[in-house]
Write a protein that binds this DNA or RNA. Structure first.
Lengths: 209, 209
DNA sequence: ATTTGGTTTAACTATCTGGTCAAAAATAAA
DNA sequence: TTTATTTTTGACCAGATAGTTAAACCAAAT
């Protein structure tokens, strides 16, 4: 086999990523992806047989970004509060660089829950057994030590995820609701959330004396 | 004009609502809506000229559900904490009855931010001037009185919205992450959130002494 | 009974879209 | 140079889909 020119494949993936993430699987057009990559539409099918196959490739890579290494923060010697501060800061910063990502992932997963979730169920399995169990244990310990109030692990994690992710998915609503479509005001608001979220969570769970 | 048979129009709207909310504008098919309403596809175009027109009708009604009367709770004599408890309970209960609603609204608004948001900007305007200002004033007063800690109005409201809405949009992820696709476990988790959210928020902002 | 006007339907159209194919172009091997 | 292999392209196809149209239907008014 000839030395394969990777740049075409890469160009396609890049273009597909952009179009899929912005328009969704249903809304994306193969022609638009081809245009974006500045190649012939047939080449898409030459490298990736079908739209679904191409989408799968993109989606898998996107998921790796969405469920990031940041989770490894949970597996460290830091205190729970430090972990929460570090995670929320880093994760919100990550999403800031990929603002369409939350909406895309949420939408596609709710459209094809069965098929796609299976694609990356491996991720979840690993996650659950490693970082997650450690964090759960730490939380239970801090509850027993009276450092944080009693709260269910699931609820706390979902609360943190909600506070980080939702504002990105709901950006158009928030823009109208609070900032009258003023981008600067929104930027200001979004920046503050990098510490606001941890602040809000820690205030909620920390036991004062 | 003959006495118009409203039942056909109503059947169409009902069917369109179901299909659009589940599949989105892009994913929905006029034929599927016709089938769902048990009528001929041509009738769709007879009553609502185009797919976009039909979608508009549906979307407007959906928005009225999504931004509910529940907000009127904010305009009452209750204490801030009572308002938070009442709102989160009622709103989560509402979403429980319309679980696809959050995902649908968020997705469509992020697809066509300009066009659609304009459609119902009236809602926002009214909201902002009435209930919202009252609530903002109350919060600022409670901060001054030392009942709750200092926190920005915007951030607090977005936090509450996040905690209520996100879990519905992210249901497929949460199912995998925490409950191994076990519906009973998820149901149990979701039920608890009706009080968990208010609990979490109030713990975060209440000043202890 | 006939007319009238809104309602419903089946058949059809134009267009879009994912996908194929064979040939051309480019590149490597002989 | 010649041959073989891989990459790229333009033309094309089949199926899907939003939307049209003309005719049938039906209920009320004359």
């Amino acid at each position: 086999m000839k030395q394969k020119d990777k740049s075409t494949e890469a160009k396609i993936l890049e273009a597909a990523n952009k179009v899929f993430v912005e328009k969704g699987l249903d809304g994306a057009r193969m022609q638009e992806i081809a245009d974006e990559a500045k190649i012939n539409k047939s080449l898409l099918h030459y490298y990736y047989r079908s739209k679904d196959k191409l989408f799968s490739e993109v989606f898998q890579k996107v998921i790796k970004t969405f469920l990031p290494d940041t989770v490894k923060i949970f597996d460290s010697e830091k205190s729970l509060f430090e972990k929460i501060e570090t995670f929320t800061l880093e994760y919100i910063t990550l999403l800031e660089k990929n603002p369409f990502l939350p909406m895309f992932v949420l939408h596609e997963l709710s459209q094809k829950p069965i098929k796609i979730t299976d694609t990356f169920s491996g991720f979840f399995d690993n996650l659950k057994q490693n970082q997650f169990e450690i964090l759960k244990f730490q939380i239970e310990k801090e509850i027993q030590n009276g450092i944080i109030r009693p709260i269910e692990f699931d609820q706390l994690i979902v609360n943190i995820m909600s506070l980080c992710i939702f504002p990105f998915a709901a950006k158009p609503i928030l823009m109208k609701l609070f900032f009258g479509d003023n981008k600067n005001q929104y930027k200001n608001f979004a920046d503050k959330r990098k510490i606001e979220v941890a602040d809000f969570v820690i205030h909620s769970i920390k036991v004062k004396n």
